[in-house]
Write a protein that binds this DNA or RNA. Sequence first.
DNA 1: AATAAGGTCAACCGCAACAAG
DNA 2: GCTTGTTGCGGTTGACCTTAT
Length: 310
Amino acid sequence: MEGKRDDGIRKGPWKAEEDEVLLNHVKKYGPRDWSSIRSKGLLQRTGKSCRLRWVNKLRPNLKNGCKFSLEEERVVIELQGQFGNKWARIATYLPGRTDNDVKNFWSSRQKRLARILQNSGAPSKSQKNKRVVQSYHGCCQGSDSRLALEAPKFSSSSEESSARAQSCSSSCIENSDMIKMVPLPDLVNPRLLTFETNFIHQEFSPAEKNPSYIESQPQIPFSQQPELTFSPESQELLARLEDPSIFEMFGPLDTCGLGNGADQLFELVGSCRTGANETIDSSITPDSFFDDFPTDVFDHIEPPPSPSER
DNA sequence: AATAAGGTCAACCGCAACAAG
DNA sequence: GCTTGTTGCGGTTGACCTTAT
């Protein structure tokens, strides 16, 4: 992969020295004249390659190596529906994210979805657990997930970067252990247990084809987003629960195989579907309920507020 | 422990839009 | 108006890492 082409142009991973040269160039001349970097003999890289490196890795305030937060995830899904695969445009709504980040995020997500759907006919034993979990995972998506989006104006103020750093670190928290300690009623706010199949339809029939969809949705800012939401692809799976044959896919597996809480899980799914406001039985043992879940189900659950924050 | 499968990320490629000559 | 060079964008690929078997 790494190496020089016949014309002497280097390709492949960038070295620290190359980054340094590129950064120096940008400091001196700004993020432009990429091709002059090579013509001046500073680097054996194409202008395109230099630009790409700057945009994706060296630009200040990038959230490199930071998983997409729930909010970011929602923004991408929302805007992909609105704009289609206009990654650069979508990225302008996500501070610190590049078009490449958004593109990669989306394609992984699509792959995952495709695989889930493809496997749904004949799930392996190990998939059974996961699929149910994902259904649960998705069923609690807040119904008011429409967003008020406005392309932000970025500044380089320290205030903004520290806020950014904070949001980045909070979204990177590995919180499965903390979550395991939280009683179920604290995690699942019954008010949030409504389900909106439109959301799924949107994912597979982008609103670009139906722009009125976006406009018709109530728009609320991030700060008013439901505090507990789940990965949206799971909603598609949940939608499949409408199909009575869905449970056949689990074969002989019954809820006993999923731990003590699985019965509640299916009740929960049912209440999600009806939008009922039942409260969750507080006699459920949280540990037994969650222990059978793969930890990735917790990935998108915000850590609970500390008692002082409540 | 070894291997396969899946996921993530960085980088390349081709194309289109735009500007300069 | 045409050609050429530059920039920006979206699609794709391959390496690497993680997780499952």
